[in-house]
């Protein structure tokens, strides 16, 4: 899933302070799961802003709404009936959701979150990056551990000389992806994969090729 984190209240305040009527819109998908922009977080954010502004004597009306999925036009269309008098939308979706809302309505729309990565939970309250979204998966070569995003240098022929006691040179709290790959391949008796020289990657399939599109002729209408 997409993992995101809420911006600070002070930053959000600055982004929406000039509005007369603010709509905070949550999303029930990834950001609900990672506890950054679901119904609960929208409620808390609205209360926090109301409280802050009350104390400061600042007047901006706040209303809230929830969408099942902000990254799909059909769901975003549901907002229509809640926009009366709204001059600013604060989206607590990932960057994708914010864009869908902004594209749909001629209303100033701002993000409440910083979209971090494609990953998952490690434990309650801890999420970790797992996929580099590089457009050409190499997990079959690396025992199911992504070197593109989990190695700080995206090495295809790792580990570098900075791998120490299974940790990355960048931080003692970060596992060295190539140490994990080595251990896994050794356990699976597939170390031969690590001896092969992996050729240079086609980054054109990643974001370096420009904004990407997936077209499926078989499912188009």
């Amino acid at each position: 899933m997409i993992v995101a984190e809420q911006k600070s209240l002070a930053e959000i305040d600055q982004l929406v302070r000039n509005a007369k009527k603010l709509l905070i819109v949550g999303c029930r998908e990834c950001v609900t799961v990672c506890m950054a922009g679901g119904e609960k977080e929208v409620g808390i954010l609205a209360s926090a802003l109301r409280l802050k502004w009350e104390n400061e004597g600042h007047k901006t009306e706040i209303v809230t709404a929830m969408l099942q999925r902000q990254c799909e036009p059909e769901y975003v269309a549901e907002l229509e009936k809640q926009l009366d008098g709204v001059d600013c939308i604060l989206s607590t979706a990932c960057g994708v959701g914010v864009q869908y809302v902004a594209e749909k309505y001629p209303i100033w729309t701002v993000p409440a979150l910083n979209t971090k990565f494609a990953g998952g939970a490690l434990e309650q309250g801890v999420w970790t990056e797992k996929c580099g979204l590089c457009g050409e998966c190499v997990l079959h070569l690396t025992g199911g551990i992504c070197p593109i995003i989990r190695c700080s240098k995206s090495l295809l022929n790792g580990p570098c000389g900075g791998s120490h006691d299974g940790k990355c040179e960048v931080s003692a709290e970060t596992d060295c992806a190539w140490a994990l790959i080595y251990d896994r391949l050794k356990k699976m008796d597939r170390l031969d994969l690590m001896l092969e020289l992996q050729p240079v990657k086609d980054w054109a399939k990643s974001r370096d090729g420009g904004p990407r599109k997936v077209v499926r002729e078989d499912v188009r209408l």
Binding site: S154, P199, V200
Partner: peptide
């Protein structure tokens, strides 16, 4: 921003 388009072996 780092590059790491290719690695040292490449």
């Amino acid at each position: 921003k780092n590059v790491y388009d290719i690695d040292s072996i490449q």
